[in-house]
Design a protein around this nucleic acid. Structure first.
Lengths: 374, 374
DNA sequence: TAGAAGTGTGAATCGGAAC
DNA sequence: GGTTCCGATTCACACTTCT
């Protein structure tokens, strides 16, 4: 009782669509547990650069040399990683998930720490840069990608994955684990007053667009503990998600706030994405019989010549087996399972028609009754 | 003086171009230190699979369920990894290097252990599979790549990198860190007497070809502690490198030996056969949206006055129909099919511009930066 | 015989609502 | 929380068989 009240109060206190100032570990610890749907984290990469790098024309490469990217040792970086991951895990709802992006300098340590903390890795995703910086010295391969890890809070977590939306984004075939997306350049790249880039590692909005469409729903709460210039917040706002940003540096917060204020949300119809069949209401086969769409005693046919007879209670009997449309189909095929709706056909005017058509009719009527779209 | 003599004697005893039987850690400890130029390792991935998986057609996926891939815990796997890495590091010459391949199940643990052991990571390389197995349940992204880590024995190591050879392999531009290579199938895939695959995880020769051309010279000694069916040995022989294989399983050793005996060393001209132009890359319309070239909610126009609205997942909605640019166009025209790229136009400065222009822009970027056999 | 059509398969951490 | 049972879900190739 007490706990419920506390949680309720805490939930109400969730600072939505704000950029919080301070160290992300401390700030995350001050927020209510199990309150966030998704975390996107772009932690320091611990680049360990030595000296300056110059291009063949002797111009100097503007590298990441900020204080926030300096760690004394692998141990120090691991401790930092464990701490922020633990605070992040506490914030996630049981069915929440996390994305972390990194390069070979840090991603192996981050991935290990995630597994040790009980996060369950769902995919590692490769961001293939279409326009990476070349290797000027010719001593290694062009470092043309970064790695993202997508993980649920625990192995048991029922994470969100908008499979059909991803498939639609990829013109009808499954989205793969390698994404080709250009670097953040041009107008999208934020500049400071002097015309220099406002942040050394600003991520492209296209990357966040895909992450958020894939693994959140409109209205979800997305937290970014290393907010930087606020790409996560900007894209979340466009897509109708709530965000919480945490950023230590005053200058980044200012740039991010100004950026997000400029962002307009897409209209609602644009945000609807292709949904999954799983979300449609379940129709028991018995309803087809009850409504007289099929008569008890009528015969159903499988693609491969199997025959079964409809019974008044919505079960089938055929070939010495009785049971649901799924069970009899599975038995005839000797298969572990079978979708009876697509397996069985009835005959009308000499033609075979899948019984799934009858289910679609029932669903259409249900929708009309409820006054829902589709 | 004494040390030099011992080393010399040990060098002479190096068992070149042989497959050694036994546990790789013990065997490596028995070999002379600082005697090997390159190590290629394909250790067990510790997949932790649960039940069976079936395809939508109910056929069963033949998964990796071998005893050698089973570990009791992350701790046990980490201990195993530390031990074989330490034995491998001892074997490497000071300027030697190592490649390790893995998937998200194990690669983060392997990468961390390598850094902890003092290996210096040079690149992580993504093997992007052109024909991966799909995700049959639609619950995650298609797992379409594996990761390789390339590292020198230490930060000070003067590793071998054949920059020009890689550049030539890539049609004159720097080789990137993402490599597109098909799975090992067809005649290359070794079968046992029963016609089943001889090894569940045989790697394609093209992958080893690129690794060895990039980071060894003819006459170098290449060791593979998880030899399996001997892809490393076969490609090393073709390319005029010496190999040492270590394999615990008698059946794999037999297959590998037979395979390598059949291999003939390439003549020089045969080495220059890589590189074919590929078809124009397919560009999903969703990329146009993700990249912000069109906004969700923005209207598209057909030549004959049809209107549709862009959605966040790259589908269109218009006139009571939802679907891809092609589907909605076909529906408006009452046609069986429609090329949405040329059919739909967006408005800029009062003028109608075909969306195909946006696809051409994306292709131009891809050609400039990616359009290589890579 | 060439082309069409059908079959097989690959390192996979591959449910979830209802009772 | 355990059990039952509905019912959703695949891409690129190589190879074989049929027309």
């Amino acid at each position: 009782m007490m706990k419920t009240m506390t949680q309720g109060a805490a939930q109400a206190a969730l600072p939505l669509n704000q950029i919080l100032a301070g160290d992300c570990i401390e700030v995350m610890r001050s927020l209510p547990e199990a309150s966030v749907d998704l975390i996107f984290a772009d932690p320091p990469y611990n680049l360990q650069l030595r000296g300056d790098l110059h291009r063949p024309d002797n111009s100097r490469v503007d590298a990441v040399d900020d204080a926030w990217d300096q760690f004394a040792s692998f141990e120090a970086y691991d401790r930092f990683t464990r701490d922020w991951l633990s605070a992040a895990q506490r914030l996630l709802k049981p069915n929440g998930a996390i994305w972390v992006i990194g390069s070979y300098h840090n991603i192996f340590r981050v991935g290990s720490a995630m597994q040790n903390a009980g996060f369950w890795i769902l995919n590692d995703v490769v961001w293939r840069k279409s326009n990476p910086m070349p290797n000027f010295r010719g001593k290694r391969l062009t470092n043309a990608h970064e790695t993202l890890i997508w993980a649920s809070k625990s192995e048991a977590g029922k994470y969100t994955f908008n499979y059909e939306a991803m498939k639609a984004l990829n013109e009808g075939v499954q989205m793969r684990s390698d994404w080709v997306i250009p670097l953040c350049t041009g107008h999208e790249r934020l500049k400071d007053a002097a015309g220099d880039k406002a942040h050394p590692t600003q991520k492209p909005e296209a990357l966040l667009h895909r992450v958020l469409v894939a693994t959140t729903n409109p209205g979800d709460v997305v937290l970014d503990p290393f907010f930087g210039t606020g790409t996560t917040g900007a894209v979340a706002k466009m897509l109708g998600r709530d965000f919480i940003g945490i950023e230590r540096e005053e200058s980044y917060r200012a740039v991010a706030q100004e950026r997000i204020d400029r962002v307009r949300k897409f209209d609602k119809s644009a945000l609807e994405t292709t949904g999954s069949k799983r979300a449609e209401p379940r129709v028991p086969f018995g309803q087809v019989v009850e409504r007289g769409m099929l008569r008890p005693g009528e015969e159903l046919f499988s693609p491969r010549g199997g025959i079964a007879k409809v019974r008044a209670d919505g079960t089938l009997v055929g070939n010495d087996v009785k049971g649901s449309i799924h069970q009899v189909g599975a038995h005839l095929e000797g298969a572990p399972s079978c979708n009876g709706w697509t397996y069985w056909h009835f005959k009308r005017d000499g033609k075979l028609i899948p019984i799934d058509l009858l289910r679609q009719q029932i669903r259409a009527e249900m929708d009309a009754d409820l006054g829902r779209p589709n």
